[in-house]
Amino acid sequence: MASGSKKVIIAALIGNSLISVTKFIAASVTGSSAMLSEGIHSLVDTGNQILLLLGLKKAKKPADDNFPFGHGKEVYFWSFVVAIMIFAVGAGISIYEGIHSLMDPHEIENPMINYIVLGLAMIFEGFAWYFAWKEFKGSKGERGYYEAVRKEKDPTTFVVLFEDSAAMFGLIVAFAGVWLSQLTGLLIFDGIASIIIGVILGATAAWLAHETKGLLIGESADREIVEGINDLAAGKNVIDVVKEVLTLHMGPQYILVTMSVDFKSGMDSDSVEMETAFLSKAIKDKYPRVKRVFIEAEASDLEGK
């Protein structure tokens, strides 16, 4: 999945960098605020993809004394930074430019250039969006789209998908703003389009921040995995009671498991060690993303003492 995510990010990076240059040139020629906002949008997206690639690279760093469980959460941190970038830079500047355009409107020159650039951008963004959607669809399995976003532990794929979706909506709004300004002669539509683009970016950023916050703080593994681990332990004849199973995602492909169990009475320490090793291996074999398992032997009659 990490390899697929990287391909999606690189595809979006190439597309957005080329599109942003084209949009800025068109904005300078035509004087369109909506086109300028779209250029800023694509430039921010380009920077965001660089940050996501940085996160993937840093997440591969091996564990050390200061980070004994590795650096997998770098992906979550940089995904959260991307959400902040979209909100602070993309949304903020777009709304500011739209308000400035409403207060001091300028006639759009050579609007046909805007139409051509926006049309080409829709094609390029459409390819990038399809690539991201295809990768996300493959990772979601049988889950619904909303559920898949809520439970996805690799945020890079849905971050790019959300960015590309916002970009497509922004292009449609920019096209409508330029067209209505030309059709009616009312220059305010161009500024309104810029503000709407900013609102779209702000809403996208808020949603991404909400989804990545839980991962950054520390989410558990999917309920199916937790229940499966519990069943594996409960199925051991040497275990009387599985008291607790706790999981934590240290990265998209790294799950930490801690559990407390009550072994049957009369077992010596060597037997407990052996059964603990067997259970740990069984959990890792069934769930490859589980990298570390800590099992605490705790007697039931000590509860509450």
Rank of each mutant, 00 (worst) to 15 (best):
K281D: 14
A209K: 11
A148S: 15
I14E: 03
D301H: 15
I86S: 04
I113G: 09
F263P: 15
V293F: 03
P111V: 03
H249S: 10
F278P: 00
F87P: 02
T247H: 05
G251E: 12
V173E: 02
L36D: 08
K281P: 01
L216I: 04
V44T: 15
L208M: 14
A26E: 06
E152N: 12
T276A: 09
G202Q: 08
S181Q: 12
D154F: 07
V29A: 08
G228S: 11
S42W: 06
S271M: 06
F158R: 03
F189V: 00
D190M: 04
F131L: 07
I239Q: 03
H41A: 01
E152Y: 01
G92F: 11
A174G: 15
A2Q: 08
A233H: 01
I188W: 04
A167M: 11
G119R: 08
A167D: 07
N48T: 07
V178C: 10
I40T: 12
A297M: 10
G138M: 13
G202E: 06
F80Q: 02
F127A: 11
G98W: 01
Y254I: 12
G55Y: 03
V82A: 02
E219S: 15
L102T: 05
R143C: 00
L248Y: 12
M122P: 07
Y254G: 12
I9E: 06
K60N: 10
I197C: 07
W78N: 05
V261E: 03
K134I: 00
S5W: 06
L302K: 15
G15D: 04
T46Y: 11
I217D: 03
D231I: 01
A282L: 12
M85K: 01
D64Q: 03
